[in-house]
Design a protein around this nucleic acid. Sequence first.
DNA 1: ATCCTGATTTTTTTT
DNA 2: AAATCAGGAT
Length: 792
Amino acid sequence: MAANPHAEHLQELLEDLNEPQREAVTHGEGPLLILAGAGSGKTRVLAHRIAFLIYTDQAQAGEILAITFTNKAASEMRERVERLLGHATRGMWLMTFHSACARILRAEAVRLGYTRQFTIYDQADSRRLAKRSADAVGVDPKRYTPAAVLNQISAAKNKLIDVDDYRRQAASPFEEMIGEVYDIYQRDLVRMNAMDFDDLLFRTVNLLELFEEARERYRVTFRHVLVDEYQDTNHAQYRLLQLLAGGGAPPKRGREAGDGEPAYARPVGHRNLAVVGDDAQSIYGFRGADIENILRFQDDFPDARVVKLEQNYRSTETILQAANSVIANNRGQIGKKLWSELGQGEQIQMRALQDEHAEARYVVGEIQRLVDEGASRAEIAVLYRTNAMSRVIEDALVRSEIAYQVIGGTKFYERAEIKDAIAYLTLLANPYDVVSFTRVANSPRRGIGATTLARVTAHAAAMDISVWEAAARPQEVPGLGSAAVKALGRFMASMAELRAMTGAEPFGGEGEDEARVAQLTADAPGDEPQRGGQGVPIAELLEAVLAQSGYIEALEAERSIEAQGRIENLEQLVEVGREFDEAEQDAEPTLERFLQEVALVADADTRSDDEGLVTLMTLHNAKGLEYPTVFITGLEDGVFPHSRAIDEGGLEEERRLFYVGVTRAMRKLYLTYARRRAVFGAQSYGMPSRFLTEIPGDLLDEGTEGFGAGAFTPSLARGGETAWSAGAGQVKAARGERAASASFRLGEDVVHAAFGDGVVTGVEPDGVIVVRFAGDGSERKLMAEYAPVTKR
DNA sequence: ATCCTGATTTTTTTT
DNA sequence: AAATCAGGAT
């Protein structure tokens, strides 16, 4: 790089980076692990590194694959890179794992037996399908909710365990049952030409393992792979990276590797893999994230360059000290100590409030005060453990007329009318999609009831044809009355008309199967669609759907405020379609691309940077963000840490979540808890969160002002009092006295309040015991001291 | 096929 | 407290 034409830019690029940051940015080829503490400028490092690779001609834009955690983070990253480069970054793959996989699969799905129009099911869709499959197996839905069943399947998929492997490994009646459900569930997905979120990863791994040609092509294409938030990758994602970048060590986790190791497992490939993460911020274990991925990166790549970023540019020292001392209670982490030059700053405000309403009033009162003093509402975030907790705070904000936004919870795309409209489009694109068909067929009501639907779908399954085809020729469906035949005929006629608008081949006539077969055998999957796709603009199609289907008409007939709101939501959706049409001018705005984009929006993507909006969200959604002022609410044992986490040994992850929350704050941090809180409508009383006791007392201001100070703002320093109203003697009492724990021995018989009889199969440090329960054969980790478990 | 009502459940966290 | 669901009446 002696006479680099970009020399000037290069220097500028490296100018205001600190030493380790610069080391990470300028690292050349080969594996790179960046351990980036909270607020240490990792996004900046990633953006600069991408720009550096391009400036030094180590990569073209099109040779870079950069994975972020959310779409929002991806577009922010793209902006930064473009600002650094001074030009657009077309062709650079900067997106989430799921988006990247969906994009690859669109081009290659044919090789795996799907058409490129395959549907992506979101969690709600998947759950409905899981419920159907569980019903078919005869699973008692009281005992195992569809969500729980789906979780099991999802966990298996995240570990790349397919149906056959799962059933072979099943070690309990419970697992055998889940295996049966998994089997049906997966068959249904394939038959419907659909994938759930986990399939996007799983099938991409399949593709790269099975087809050497594709594997080599993508390896060559992505000469440099960068991954943000590496601590939250799961096994499937790990495997995917290995296939793309070439592994270091062969796979040791997952299934048996050994001698007969397949070719793809061997460490070939460019190994230009740069990952950024912070093990202290791993908070997605519940959805399969494997913290071991980051902890063992150096085992996978013994020659990896390791860079630690420990200087924090975000928070005051007070906030960092609190975060450091809390996280010190976790074990088995990569040692890191955050420090800052921003000075001590203000004390952390801690408050105990009467109940959740008082808590909300306190938070809103403080927000009011800060805004009066000149703060922008956009500088303030209120965080909580579960989505349901937003409501009380929202009420208080509304009452005080403070503008706010809620991230997550009931999303726009989860509203019934939006899902209906999307389901119409999905069915038009993918005539095999039974879930969309059943959703849409009788909505609005047109006399196609549950029995009719069941007969049609059963017929389709029996004849091995698409639902569309079955519904299009209703007279062939056994058992249908003449009214049902007529209703179906009318419905399908208008659907056929709408499908014609999309420019897709007509469907449901005789030659249908050839259509899929032709698509499946069409070789040479490329990056562009083989034909067609130039159909109508999405907005136009949507309007036609809503009119033709009688959907809008039915809502108008209702004449209710609620229906009016739904109509407005649908208008908003049409607007989304219009924006998509305009944004895609160069590429063809195909229906499937639109549906894919809609399916993969995350809560966090909907965040607005609008000035003047206070932001409310869960702690999970706050990952990666920062605010001058942060409120963390609901700091009670059982709420945060969540009771289920306490029961199941998830305390360390909860603690990391708290760490994430604390480190979002730049200058002011508020921690609040309520003594009494309504849970499911019933009142419950909780102790202050144990995390509060892990913060050194001198960092906290417990508020002495105000009426009945002692009564409502108990002090950690004070103590001795007995009841709640007398102060938080409990907090002090709790400090340091948690260590004592009931001891269980290996092999001991125990009884759990919820799970019933079980036996201790493992004893771990920190009072964690492993118990296998007779009821369902499940094995759970419990905190001996806190879980409702006794010796028998 | 559709509507109503009472019972049951829901709350972790999410791509 | 709200939402979904099952069962039964129309």
